[in-house]
Amino acid sequence: MDANANMHLTLNVWRQRNNSTEGGFVTYEVSDVSPDMSFLEMLDVLNERLVHEGKEPIAFDHDCREGICGSCSMYINGRPHGPLKGVATCQLHMRSFKSGDTIAIEPWRAVAFPVIKDLVTDRTAFDRIIASGGFVSVNTGNARDANSIPVRKENADDAFMAASCIGCGACVAACKNSSAMLFVSAKISQLALLPQGQTERKIRAEKMVAQMDSEGFGACSNTGACSAECPKEISLDTIARTNREYLGAKMTSSAV
């Protein structure tokens, strides 16, 4: 078969008018899909057709379309961001599928991420977790001269790795417990590893974990599905670090 030939696909898409109505799957047949299209472009084409037909287009989150904003969030054929490893939905291309495939597209499923419409979920729970402690309170100013604040190379690397989290929520979506531990751990790790994060290190761990729990995310059971599905491949080491940070903070912080 010609690899450049256009594809024909059957899509089972979750449609839901709003949070207070029940949703369901609607089947769409799409033809003339180029293997070079991104997954979102394929949906754009379908939406254009739906608009022409006078139907409601499929609502989905998207913004940068270059894999760094964390907006796109689709559960594709049973996996967040689809079948590829270390890739967000916007960077998934139709060449990863075969003509004739049936593709199931669902929103993230978690009590803490209620569906707003179709494939769009409300992920402000993540914002509230960050607002509870995922920051450095003082202005750290402009970039310093190199090495004026010594940071170990390993710490810089690990902090950078953790900071690459785009907050898309694939970890929650992939976890059988809808746990947000990988997201929270990425932020706690990033700041715990750098000198600027030290002052608020303990209170940060305490507050972010408390906020995570109050949002209704589940507990971590170390299945590793989050890290396996993370488009930035954040490591499970960050979760162990957060367990250390949190338990250590609880044992030693001044908050009695």
């Binding site: 995310f217 589940g218 507990a219 059971s221």
Partner: peptide
């Protein structure tokens, strides 16, 4: 914990769930 974790998924689950983890861990 199993009860809390199950509740966190919500009333509507996934139609297809190809979890990338070991059977034992789940």
């Amino acid at each position: 914990l199993a009860y809390v974790n199950r509740r966190a998924r919500g009333s509507v689950g996934y139609k297809r769930f190809d979890n990338q983890s070991s059977w034992a861990s789940r």
